[in-house]
Design a protein around this nucleic acid. Structure first.
Lengths: 130, 130
DNA sequence: CTATCATATGATCATCTGTTCATATGATGA
DNA sequence: TCATCATATGAACAGATGATCATATGATAG
């Protein structure tokens, strides 16, 4: 068994001792503040059960707004508002066909993010999975 | 090139036409409501810039509360409250050493979820990356 | 053009969230 | 024991969020 998370970082600062040095070193290794803010905003979009259910439904195939509303047992307006948020995040893309508008996932990354989250939950729920 | 998101799902319902059938089929293929709720709750924890910065800092090595506070330029109390949320989600784990308490990531999945989100953001920001 | 259907949008409101301030806990050293 | 240091917790308040209702847009059929 090896220690996985030493109090002192490995890479750039092997034997720093003061808190200030540890902080400075850690800060240097972190992504830009701006990027981390965007990452948080992205996860915020995934962090609502209505939107997660929409994304989950779209993992397989595109669906129109009214089908999503029926599927989730919610009003059309609520779905439309959430789709707006998903569109803004570029996670979902509309396609018009007559009066109907079909929504589909916009990005392959949605799959991997969703899968990573789902895997963690399934792992926590019942032993090892996937 | 193959069509990736057909209006009609592939697996169980190859030529369903009514909305009701599409909805029923989609519902059958989705994870349990309960699981999706938990997934949303998980992403909610990632969906705050303070917590994302904490997790990002801990990706490398454990840190104590006061270092995190200094690193993020925030009060000790705010950090402590957020660590409580991260602990409840089992994303972070405390280790006492005298008066100091060091926090480290609790789960390998944190890495993969964080990486998936970061990758999407970096991809959107500047061309292809990673 | 007009009525209708599918979807989008704006306003409103109750609920949730995150930070701050004050205080509590818990370990250490004198 | 008491004072101190690191962290945790509770109350409170401002700001964000999501569903609902009413209404607007935009395409189609007649």
């Amino acid at each position: 068994m090896e220690n996985k998370t030493p109090a002192i970082p490995e890479g750039c600062c092997a034997e720093l001792e003061t808190h200030e040095d540890v902080v400075a070193c850690t800060r240097a290794q972190m992504p830009d503040e701006e990027v981390l803010y965007d990452v948080a905003e992205l996860f915020k979009v995934f962090g609502d059960s209505t939107r997660i259910r929409i994304l989950s439904a779209l993992l397989d195939h595109e669906l129109c707004v009214c089908d999503l509303a029926e599927l989730l047992g919610m009003g059309q307006s609520a779905i439309s508002h959430q789709l707006r948020i998903l569109r803004a995040a570029e996670l979902v893309r509309p396609r018009r066909d007559g009066k109907t508008i079909y929504y589909a996932l916009d990005d392959e990354h949605v799959h991997s993010i969703f899968a990573a989250g789902l895997q963690h939950i399934l792992h926590k729920r019942g032993g090892i999975s996937l």
